[in-house]
């Protein structure tokens, strides 16, 4: 190695890195780890929320369906009772008519 090359070696000797470089690397490493963990955590959390929401919708829907079914049954019963009442009333009216009409006819004669 001649004098020029020795000069080149001295010129290109190692430079001290900034004091904070190791801390910066560790900070970026920590941030990278968090970044990796976050989507997974968010994924599970989101899945739990979706499952809970679906269960809630199913329960509310089921309750509502059951209420509507009971209302329908009650309505049908009321309708049938009303029809039965009309039939009874009609029958009573016919019986009353059958009794009253002969009396009216006899009176006219």
């Amino acid at each position: 190695m001649d004098r020029f090359e020795q000069e080149l070696k001295d010129a290109l000797k190692r430079e001290p890195a900034p004091e904070w470089l190791a801390d910066a690397v560790m900070a970026r490493l920590g941030a990278e780890r968090q970044k990796k963990q976050k989507p997974e955590w968010f994924g599970w959390a989101r899945l739990r929320w979706v499952a809970a929401s679906m269960a809630l919708v199913a329960v509310v829907g089921g309750v509502r369906f059951e209420q509507q079914r009971e209302e329908r049954i009650r309505g049908e019963q009321a309708k049938q009772e009303l029809m039965a009442a009309f039939q009874v009333t009609g029958m009573k009216l016919r019986q009353a008519e059958e009794r009253v009409l002969p009396v009216i006819h006899r009176g006219q004669e």
């Binding site: 290109l12 000797k13 190692r14 430079e15 001290p16 890195a17 900034p18 470089l21 190791a22 801390d23 690397v25 560790m26 490493l29």
Partner: peptide, 22 residues
């Protein structure tokens, strides 16, 4: 481990930084 890796960084940072700096 964090402590061990930080030591490795400190040991070699001058070499890595110097190559990039020059």
């Amino acid at each position: 481990e964090d402590a061990g890796f930080a030591e490795i960084v400190r040991e070699h940072q001058s070499m890595v930084y110097s190559i990039a700096w020059h």
